[in-house]
């Protein structure tokens, strides 16, 4: 789609959306949000970019093949689960640490994995469809 207005507006909106998606991801453990929602917002952002600027531009922007993002997400989730396994607890048990009072734990890492899988899967699919159409 060749629309100057769309591509101009899109640039600003996309940045905001990606930022918002990260915000949703991080605060999701305590307030509405989380990996699924965040991932969908980010995916929508890239989708908007692809509509405004074309798929090749989006691929350049991503730098990484979205399929790789999907698999990295799965890997991150596995690693988050293995932390507990190495401590002798069942796979995917939450392990927490409190450096300076900030709760950091493997469930958050796991949520990052979910986020990446959702982003990667949706973008993989939609970009491939756009290219084919």
């Amino acid at each position: 789609m060749n629309s100057l207005i769309l591509s101009t507006v899109a640039r600003a909106v996309i940045a905001l959306m990606v930022l918002f998606s990260l915000y949703l991801l991080i605060r999701g453990h305590n307030l509405p949000g989380g990996g699924f929602v965040g991932g969908l917002v980010a995916a929508s952002a890239f989708l908007l970019h692809a509509i405004a600027n074309g798929v090749p531009a989006t691929r350049r922007l991503l730098r990484v093949d979205p399929r790789a993002i999907t698999m990295i997400g799965v890997a991150v989730a596995i690693i988050a689960g293995l932390v507990a396994a190495f401590q002798g607890a069942p796979f995917l048990t939450g392990v927490w640490a409190f450096p300076g009072g900030v709760p950091l734990g493997t469930p958050l890492l796991f949520d990052v994995g979910v986020y990446l899988v959702v982003v990667g899967a949706v973008v993989t699919l939609v970009l491939a469809l756009e290219e084919d159409a």
């Binding site: 699924f36 969908l40 959702v118 899967a121 949706v122 699919l125």
Partner: peptide, 12 residues
């Protein structure tokens, strides 16, 4: 929540 996302994958 997971059903919606999975459903989307299936539909796609």
């Amino acid at each position: 929540l997971t059903a919606i996302v999975i459903g989307f994958g299936l539909l796609a």
